[in-house]
């Protein structure tokens, strides 16, 4: 089988894998939305959780079916084809690194608003709880992606090679350099104004993940062009 044919087959299987993963994530979000209906401040319509649960069950089942039935040919997991696939995946990851800070910025107003209200003594609304949980889940997922977790074994040798590890280490160094002084500053602010410190916590967390994501994007782009930062 030619490399082009193998690549096309692998791309189709990867497409099914991705759609499956998106469906599973949608199902998880629906399940989460249903679960937040159980908290005391949720609206009185207690049947909404049943709709959410049904949507979650259907989408998760469809997602699992797609993922389990998509098979990448074994020949596409080694040699030149594996390298080509890994480089294509690297290009997509670069776009993801760029989109991470953007998505965190979009969620941040809602999270800061919720934090601010709760810090002011109000009880958290179910919609706010949903936003906050999504924000935390995205933060953790982004941090894992930046750290190079979740790579397939065939791609790891290319994407997680010596240069890849070095670039990730540099990006994570920036996260450390943001979070450590930021936490120290928050601690001091908290001694003077506790509410402000609580409100600023999600901003610091977003900076601690978004900063390294942008740095990794720049470093990988520079490495591709043959001019990495010193």
């Amino acid at each position: 089988m030619s490399d082009e044919l193998l690549l096309a087959q692998a791309r189709r299987a990867e497409g099914r894998h991705k759609i499956g993963m998106i469906l599973i994530l949608c199902g998880a979000i629906a399940a989460l939305a249903g679960a937040t209906e159980w908290i005391p401040t949720a609206p009185t319509d207690k049947h909404l959780w049943q709709i959410c649960a049904a949507v979650a069950a259907v989408t998760i089942a469809a997602g699992l079916a797609l993922r389990l039935t998509a098979r990448v040919p074994a020949e596409a997991k080694r040699g030149r084809v594996a390298m080509m696939r890994a480089e294509q995946s690297q290009a997509k990851r670069q776009v993801a690194y760029l989109l991470m800070p953007l998505s965190l910025c979009l969620m941040l107003p809602g999270v800061v608003g919720a934090t601010s209200r709760v810090a002011g003594g109000a009880t958290i609304e179910h919609t706010e709880l949903f936003t906050v949980i999504c924000f935390i889940a995205f933060l953790l997922a982004f941090a894992l992606l930046i750290a190079g977790r979740g790579l397939d074994r065939w791609a790891a040798s290319v994407l997680n090679d010596e240069l890849g590890r070095e670039l990730r280490a540099k990006a994570l160094q920036l996260g450390y350099a943001i979070l450590l002084p930021g936490l120290a500053a928050l601690f001091v602010v908290g001694l003077v104004n506790r509410d402000l410190a609580v409100e600023l916590t999600p901003v610091l967390a977003a900076l601690g993940v978004g900063g390294p994501a942008l740095r990794l994007y720049r470093l990988e782009r520079a490495a591709g062009a043959g001019a990495i930062e010193a």
Partner: peptide, 13 residues
């Protein structure tokens, strides 16, 4: 890169 088992970017840099 294929012979060494690293990415093309690594060889380039």
């Amino acid at each position: 890169a294929l012979r060494v088992g690293v990415s093309r970017k690594t060889i380039n840099t």
